[in-house]
């Protein structure tokens, strides 16, 4: 057992020494650059998701009343909405409450404060039972015909469009990650192939004097794993640098809207996952190369 551990330690030390050489570092950088694209894209999407998460994605209809609508008209409309079987809930939002919510919104508080009078109408926020697009459209059309109603707005439309775009981006990113994962395997495969060619004599002699296949293959597996892990680390460094540079401009843009929004780096679990996945793919590349070239 001790001898086995000693052999692993020696193989690991040899792999670290090989990785520290210029060719090993160059391969790790290539892997890191390739991985930084999906990792960076993922970080941006996560930020976008965080931003979109603050918006409601539940399809709701805002039913705005005529500014001159009487209290009785408002109550009648409320009763009509609650009686409609297609409506799950209807919440009355008085114009004063709407103004308070608007004042609480980042970036436009000063604009609202500058208004001489409340320009907002009373409104009902309606949640539909059937949240399908056709049902919502039909409901909105019917609500528009009700007395005292001046406008009906589907609140979640643009948020849903954003979510759909994010979904497409996520799919594209997954495809890119898979593609670059293959590239990582190919880079490691080739690096290990060159290492095997460079050390062919040593391998031949070792075999002749009693080295097992496991002993001969072990340093290459370690090299592939370390190269992948180092590549993952390089990718994280690139993403962190890129986000830090972008945040300079994002800060200016966000502050112009009165927001403190910043692009955040990947969470600890995601960051560790990037490095581990990269290491795993590196090991896989080494395994395939060794299986192909060390028979």
């Amino acid at each position: 057992m001790i001898a086995w551990l000693r052999q692993h330690r020696r193989a690991l030390a040899g792999a670290i020494a090989r990785l520290a050489k210029a060719s090993g570092l160059a391969s790790a950088i290539v892997i890191g650059v390739a991985l930084s694209l999906p990792a960076g894209g993922y970080a941006l999407l996560e930020n976008l998701r965080g931003l979109a998460g603050r918006l409601t994605l539940e399809p709701r209809l805002s039913v705005f009343l005529r500014p001159e609508a009487k209290r009785a008209e408002t109550e009648a409309l409320g009763a009509a909405l609650r009686a409609d079987a297609r409506i799950a809930a209807a919440r009355f939002v008085p114009r004063e409450e709407a103004l308070r919510e608007l004042k609480a919104t980042e970036g436009i508080a000063e604009v609202v404060a500058a208004l001489e009078r409340n320009p907002l109408p009373d409104a009902f926020v309606v949640s539909a039972k059937d949240q399908g697009a056709a049902a919502l459209d039909a409901l909105a059309a019917d609500l528009r015909r009700l007395p005292a109603v001046v406008h009906v707005q589907a609140d979640a439309d643009w948020a849903r469009r954003l979510a759909a775009l994010a979904g497409i981006a996520r799919l594209a990113l997954a495809f890119l990650a898979a593609l670059l994962g293959f590239a990582l395997i190919a880079v490691t495969f080739n690096t290990i192939r060159l290492q095997i060619l460079t050390r062919r004599e040593e391998i031949e002699v070792s075999r002749l004097i009693g080295a097992t296949d496991a002993f001969i293959r072990r340093p290459f597996y370690y090299l592939g794993l370390l190269q992948g892990l180092a590549g993952g680390g390089v990718a994280l460094a690139i993403v962190a640098t890129g986000l830090a540079l972008l945040n300079g401009e994002v800060r200016v843009l966000a502050e112009s809207y009165g927001s403190a929004f910043r692009l955040a780096f990947l969470g600890p679990v995601d960051a560790v996952a990037v490095v581990l996945l990269s290491g795993l793919l590196g090991w896989l590349g080494a395994f395939l190369s060794v299986s192909r070239h060390l028979r």
Binding site: I2, A3, R6, Q7, R10, E201, E202, E204, V205, S206, L208, I209, G210, A211, T212, F215
Partner: peptide, 22 residues
């Protein structure tokens, strides 16, 4: 079948790399 990128000592140590000796 000597390894010419290794020293004399390293050549002799090669079989000991996969032996059980400390």
């Amino acid at each position: 079948k000597l390894l010419y990128d290794r020293s004399v000592y390293e050549n002799v140590m090669l079989p000991l790399a996969f032996s059980d000796h400390g």
